[in-house]
């Protein structure tokens, strides 16, 4: 390829310098070849855009005072439970100010329908979108970088339709928006591409579904943040507990809402067997992601600190894993 290009450029330069030896036909031939070569080269020399652009500093969390540390809603309607849980925290107006751009990050990772509990319940996402808009949000964005094919995940999870209907702008991630995040020195993550929208927003709401996961024991809110990471995400699995704590500290979500309407007890995170799904009918909401995850772990009969990310998160001071001493309010919808 390089030799060809050089040959062509030589020919063109001879032509320009006025060498009488080059005929018109030769010149035209060279021109055509150059065009062809340019078309061929187009695919091979596209630079990684993420490297060329700026870097993203860690996201700053908006300080919010809530009446309780964690709200746990029980009931039968996912939407009503969500509204009750947010109400118990003091209402969505605590987190969302008029004119805000809000990002809601559900788990749309798998091409499964909601009853398999592999993806976040669409009704919970829709209820949150409506609450944000009612609180005066200018725009509510809903997206996820999926594991299965994105179009099918968005459609079959039911989240795309539900969130759009509620008034959110639902879109697929754009590769060029993954920019290198500047993790603090000493982080296990070092530098990693993260999605700009999830960092540059006024309010970030993390809405995972509580599931079993062989590598980490459980996948909860901290693990859900992998969905706004770019790059070869499989590599995050190495030393994952430290890295999930890094991510939680980096993204600092204002609000964590865990969908435990149905939980996946085994064969997670993709599931696929209704026998493994347990209808717990709970929605957990709080400002402390570690505490929310700690509480969700108890639903699986696990001790909070048995979940690696929760343990490391508490050690790092990202939140509390002590559910006995925290102020947890249970409401019924």
């Amino acid at each position: 390829m390089m030799r060809l290009l050089k040959n062509i450029s030589d020919r063109i330069t001879t032509r320009i310098s006025g060498s009488p030896a080059t005929s018109r036909r030769e010149f035209l031939g060279a021109l055509a070849a150059a065009l062809g070569a340019a078309a061929l080269a187009r695919s091979s020399v596209s630079p990684s855009r993420a490297e060329a652009a700026q870097k993203l500093p860690p996201r700053k969390k908006r300080a919010v005072k809530t009446p309780c540390d964690l709200a746990v809603a029980r009931g039968s309607s996912p939407a009503a439970m969500t509204r009750k849980a947010i109400e118990a925290l003091g209402g969505m107006g605590q987190f969302v100010r008029p004119g805000d751009t809000v990002v809601i990050k559900p788990n749309i990772g798998w091409n499964r329908t909601p009853e398999y509990a592999a993806t976040t319940n669409p009704e919970i996402v829709a209820a949150l979108v409506k609450l944000c808009l009612a609180a005066g949000a200018k725009r509510v964005k809903v997206f996820d970088r999926t594991c299965n094919e994105a179009g099918m995940c968005y459609a079959n999870s039911g989240i795309s339709d539900a969130a759009k209907k509620a008034g959110a702008s639902v879109f697929h991630v754009i590769d060029s928006k993954f920019l290198p995040g500047m993790f603090p020195a000493g982080s296990a993550m070092k530098s990693w591409p993260v999605y700009a929208d999830a960092v540059q927003c006024d309010c970030l709401i993390n809405v995972p579904v509580a599931k079993h996961h062989s590598r980490t024991g459980l996948t909860l809110s901290m693990k859900n943040l992998m969905g706004v990471c770019g790059g070869n995400r499989g590599m995050i699995h190495i030393n994952i507990d430290e890295k999930l704590a890094d991510l939680t500290g980096f993204f600092n979500p204002e609000l964590t809402v865990i969908d435990a309407y149905r939980i996946l007890l085994a064969h997670g995170p993709s599931g696929g067997r209704l026998r493994d799904v347990k209808p717990t009918k709970i929605v957990i909401a709080g400002t402390d992601p570690v505490l929310a995850d700690a509480y969700a772990a108890t639903l699986f009969g696990m001790k909070p600190r048995d979940v690696g990310a929760v343990r490391v998160g508490e050690e790092r001071g990202l939140g509390s894993a002590d559910i006995t001493r925290s102020k947890i309010r249970t409401v019924t919808a």
Partner: peptide
Amino acid sequence: DCLVCEEHCPVP
């Protein structure tokens, strides 16, 4: 530890 393959395996 890795288990990315197990995580993605779609068989129920």
